[in-house]
Amino acid sequence: MADPLAAGPDAVQFRFRDDEPVDHPAVTVDSFLNQSNASAVRIEPGDDARELVPHLEHIRLVEINFPSFTDGRGYSSARILREAGYTGELRAVGDVLVDQLGHMRRCGFDSFEPDHQMNEDDAKAALRTWPEVYQAAADTRAPIWKLRHKEGSHG
């Protein structure tokens, strides 16, 4: 995979995928549900991500908007889509800050389009913060309880 932290000047600052990005703008959840020929959808904080679940095979990009980084509804939306088997691009858009990166990755986000570009060294450090994780989420990291019991030992 290309180094996502050395991405180009595009509005998407970091992208952890190798496939071609979708080249058309995302539509709202309502317009997607009314005329589902779009393959890019944008979820706002009040939208219910579960409404997209029956249509995931048609979707290649889901943008989840964070108008304010303190509104955490988008974290649940992301996990819900990943748990439903969505494998397309999941992009965090808006007030996305460096200290949220690691948690967003765990919830299934694999690209980031922040309002303000992040310092790349800080971003690299943020993604390296946690040596392990305590809980299962939408990423592939094995939780600490799994590590503790994988060989029947107490670690």
Binding site: G72, H103, R106, Y134, A137
Partner: peptide, 13 residues
Amino acid sequence: RQWSSFHPEFLAL
């Protein structure tokens, strides 16, 4: 405690 520590989905409730 362990489950809720740094739970990635629930840090901006």
